[in-house]
Every structure is written in structure tokens, then in C-alpha cells.
């Protein structure tokens, strides 16, 4: 923007006398134009963001300070009572544990797998587009369809996975009954949907890595794995940081998978063995206990900020040779 300003001044015919007042006004308008226009251009986004992002956030905070049940006409202000109840609520900490457990189980293998897949695809291949599109297909599938199909696969009596396990003499595993087994099953559903998507992002970053580096490394005798570790990963680190943070946020918000796993359940199983934080919010929301649900939402927001921050620090600080 700044570079265009001189052209505009030059456009004023030089010889013509201009009255000082008018000149001042035009100068002001011009200044406003140059300084203000950029803000005006980005304004639509921020107005919408305020209406649908910022306002709900603030209003949720306000609701969380009330005993706010939709069915009753009066909403009483209770201060931080909801948060006090929440911190003493076993079910809240249970949901927090489940969320973290499912988050780690799904994100870590998912990202490793995604980098590996991207690495495999980052070489001259026939039918490249076909492979890339295939990677993205699980992500385009409706999450409901994915969960319904996987629930069938993970069925206790008639599921395909237990049928295959039975070849190795493993008895029927009731996948959705146990804590560990249900977390593994849900993590697999999440990985199924998101690995390909992340692999594509990594692939895009990898294609920007200069070929010469690999050539030089090959001449120096570096093997495939060394190249991946010493060249590719350090070079795409900003992308890794980005993907880690978005996946973390995604993992903290898992809702549909536990909600629909096996059977529609607000409690995430009869013992709340796979109820995540988002599902815990939803359970209280369905009960129309909006005050409590809002308090949980805010706690979840804080968790996400903290965990995303920690991940950011870890991934940024981890050793990287080239940068």
C-alpha cells in the first residue's frame, strides 16, 4: 500500500493552483484512504467473527456464571459456583482423562503415519493424483457413516475384527465396554479420517524442499531414513508445528465418534468409559442445564489453549539440523 502513495500525489496536475483548505481536506481523505482501507477490507471477516466467534465466547462466559436451565423462566447469578461444582465432579475429570487418552492415542501415531505416507508419495510416481485423492477420501466421508461402519467392525458378537482375532485364538473382545479397548477403537476411527488429510499437508510442504539437498545428501552417502530425519523433517518444521496444533485442537473436541460408537450414547458407555469433554458438554446441554454446560466449555477452552501452547513449545524447541 505504502508504495502506491507517491503515484497518487504525482497524479495531481503540478501547475494548477489548489486552494489550501481543499488541499488539506483532500490530504485528509487520502490519508484516511491509505490508512483505513486495509482495515475496511478485512472488516467483513472480523464483523462475522465477532458475531459468531467472539460474542458466543463472551456470552458463554456470562451464562457459565448462572444457574441457567432453559426450562425455567429465571436465571440466577451464582458467580463461580458452576466451576466449583465442576472441579469437584468425578465425571468431569473422567471426561478429561478420556479426552487426553484418546487424544494421545489418535494424534501421535496419526502424525507419524502421515509423515511416512507423505514421504512415500514425495517421489516420482505414476498416477500421483490418484494416490493423493485416495488419501483424502476418508476425510470426505461423513463422520457418521465412518462411525457406524466402524461400530459394526468392532462389534462383540458379529464384528469383523473379532472374527479375524478369533483366527489367532483371541476370544470375543467387547470393544466398547472396556476403557482401553474403547479408546483404541475410537482412536482408530479418528486416525482413519485424518491421517490422509495431514499427509497431504505434509506432502505440500515437502515439495517445497529443494531437491539439491537430497542430491547432496545422497552423494554424501546418507540413506533414505537419514534423509527423512535430517533433511525433510527439519525443513518442514513450521508445517509440523501447524499440524500438531490443529490436530491437538481437533482431538480435544472429539464428539461424534464417542456419541455414536456402538449405540447413540450421551454418557459414552454405561460407565462413562469413553465420554469425552465435548460429549460431557453435549450431555449437559441436552439436559438443558446451560450454565453447567457453559462452565465445562470454558474449562475445555482453557485446556485447549494450555495444551496447544505446550505442544507449540515442544515442537518448536525440538532439535532440527538445518534451520
Amino acid at each position: 500500500m505504502a508504495t502506491r502513495a507517491p503515484d497518487r500525489l504525482a497524479a495531481v496536475p503540478p501547475g494548477k493552483p489548489v486552494r489550501p483548505r481543499r488541499r488539506v481536506r483532500r490530504h485528509l481523505v487520502h490519508q484516511l484512504d491509505v490508512k483505513g482501507s486495509p482495515y475496511a477490507y478485512v472488516a467483513p471477516f472480523f464483523l462475522l467473527f465477532s458475531a459468531f466467534g467472539l460474542f458466543p465466547l463472551a456470552y458463554t462466559a456470562w451464562v457459565s456464571l448462572h444457574e441457567w436451565v432453559l426450562l425455567s423462566d429465571e436465571q440466577t447469578f451464582v458467580g463461580l459456583d458452576n466451576f466449583r461444582t465442576l472441579l469437584a465432579d468425578d465425571y468431569f475429570w473422567n471426561a478429561t482423562f478420556n479426552t487426553l487418552s484418546i487424544g494421545v492415542l489418535s494424534t501421535v501415531p496419526q502424525l507419524l503415519l502421515a509423515i511416512w505416507l507423505a514421504h512415500l508419495l514425495n517421489r516420482p510416481l505414476r498416477a500421483q493424483t490418484f494416490f493423493r485423492v485416495t488419501l483424502l477420501l476418508p476425510n470426505v466421508t461423513s463422520v457418521v457413516a465412518v462411525v457406524v461402519i466402524f461400530s459394526q467392525l468392532f462389534g462383540r458378537d458379529f464384528g469383523m475384527i473379532n472374527w479375524m482375532l478369533s483366527w489367532f485364538g483371541v476370544g470375543a473382545v467387547p470393544w466398547n465396554e472396556g476403557v482401553a479397548s474403547s479408546h483404541v477403537a475410537i482412536s482408530i476411527m479418528i486416525m482413519w479420517r485424518w491421517t490422509g488429510y495431514n499427509a497431504l499437508i505434509f506432502l505440500a510442504a515437502m515439495q517445497a524442499v529443494p531437491r539439491e539437498l537430497y542430491e547432496a545428501a545422497t552423494i554424501d552417502g546418507a540413506g533414505e531414513f537419514t534423509q527423512l530425519r535430517r533433511i525433510t523433517i527439519p525443513m518442514i518444521k513450521p508445517t509440523i508445528v501447524f499440524v500438531v496444533i490443529t490436530s491437538t485442537i481437533g482431538a480435544m473436541q472429539v464428539l461424534a465418534e464417542p456419541l455414536l460408537f456402538g449405540v447413540y450414547t450421551l454418557t459414552g458407555g454405561v460407565d462413562r468409559q469413553y465420554q469425552t469433554l465435548a460429549l460431557f458438554i453435549y450431555e449437559n446441554f441436552i439436559k438443558l442445564d446451560l450454565g453447567y454446560a457453559s462452565a465445562i466449555s470454558w474449562m475445555m477452552f482453557i485446556f485447549i489453549v494450555v495444551i496447544a501452547g505446550i505442544n507449540y513449545l515442544i515442537t518448536r524447541r525440538s532439535r532440527g539440523g538445518l534451520l
Partner: peptide, 23 residues
């Protein structure tokens, strides 16, 4: 020349119109 409309008005109006229609 003097009647030229400042450029920022356009997007601003669009933004307002958008918000109003959303509301």
C-alpha cells in the same frame, strides 16, 4: 475529481449490509 468516493466506503457498506442480512 473532487467527488471521487473514498475507496473504503465500498467494503464498509458491504460489511454492514452483510451483517444486517445475517441478523
Amino acid at each position: 475529481m473532487g467527488t471521487r468516493r473514498p475507496r473504503f466506503l465500498g467494503p464498509m457498506l458491504a460489511a454492514v449490509a452483510l451483517t444486517v442480512s445475517v441478523a
